[in-house]
Design a protein around this nucleic acid. Structure first.
Lengths: 149, 149
DNA sequence: TATTGTTATACTCTATAACTATA
DNA sequence: TATAGTTATAGAGTATAACAATA
């Protein structure tokens, strides 16, 4: 989503750099994740489940912003890969506890550090520690501004 | 694509803010674009075509990073909406010139300023002009770092 | 031989609405 | 009545490979 022109506006001139920086980051990251055999949505689910004792579909949906009908399909494919299981919750027989299998947990533990290590050099190459420290609060304010919409 | 933990690393601590800021921006932007009747891919194509005399599929693909097989479908849907046309190129009978119709051009002229105006207040609310100026080169370096991958 | 664009194929994500089972 | 999750449906984007027309 790029707005051409409008580059002269002091605020809108930030649009392009923001979009381009994120997309470059995202594409590199996605390539790496897909090279490990996961889609973005699947990665997000694994990320959400990793290190927990399991979550319900509702909780997972809130964490990943995937709606429940869509989630069923994503979970099906991860289950077919043997990465997670669904188990009944006692106390509420409507609910399901979604949790990583040992295979899924192993993948989580491998994939996350691997992905972080993959990303890190790009940040190091681009920015000094000082600049990172400068940038963080600005990004957070930007997030909060858009989230209040 | 969020990496939990790793927040203590001075570089990787930037990951979450970057992703969250962009996603908040992107979601607000996408909602607005979809409220105008376009998908993101369609918006990107209109953005690329707007203000030009037309582009070939190859050029459009390079600009939007949509592969040619996918592009055909996106163009079909925009053509069905009466927003663009395909015309033969003389000189190379393999090539097609994709260009906005007057309806498409009118939409481009309406949708772009509208979208920019929609986004602007969020930036103004979040950042000072000084901060925007600070941030731009950092984002560009980040982009270049990831693009070289 | 190489390039342009379409077609065919297949998969994933996406949302919504209807549904079942349970609360 | 409300909630949890699945199923059904439909549409959009995605890539790849095969193809026809042209260069």
């Amino acid at each position: 989503m790029l707005i051409k022109d409008y580059r002269k506006d002091p605020y809108l001139s930030l649009l392009r750099p923001l979009v381009e920086a994120y997309l470059a980051f995202y594409r590199a990251g996605t390539r790496h994740i897909e090279s490990m055999g996961l889609t973005s949505a699947q990665f997000d689910v694994i990320a959400e489940l990793g290190g927990t004792d399991g979550l319900t579909c509702v909780e997972l949906g809130e964490g990943t912003l995937i709606t429940k009908g869509t989630l069923t399909g994503v979970l099906d494919r991860l289950e077919a890969k043997g990465l997670l299981t669904r188990e009944k919750v006692k106390g509420d027989r409507r609910a399901t506890n979604i949790l990583l299998t040992s295979k899924g947990e192993a993948l989580y533990k491998k994939v996350f550090p691997a992905h972080a290590e993959f990303l890190k050099p790009f940040f190091e190459q681009a920015l000094s520690k000082e600049e990172v420290k400068q940038m963080k609060p600005l990004l957070k304010r930007l997030r909060d501004s858009f989230e209040g919409s």
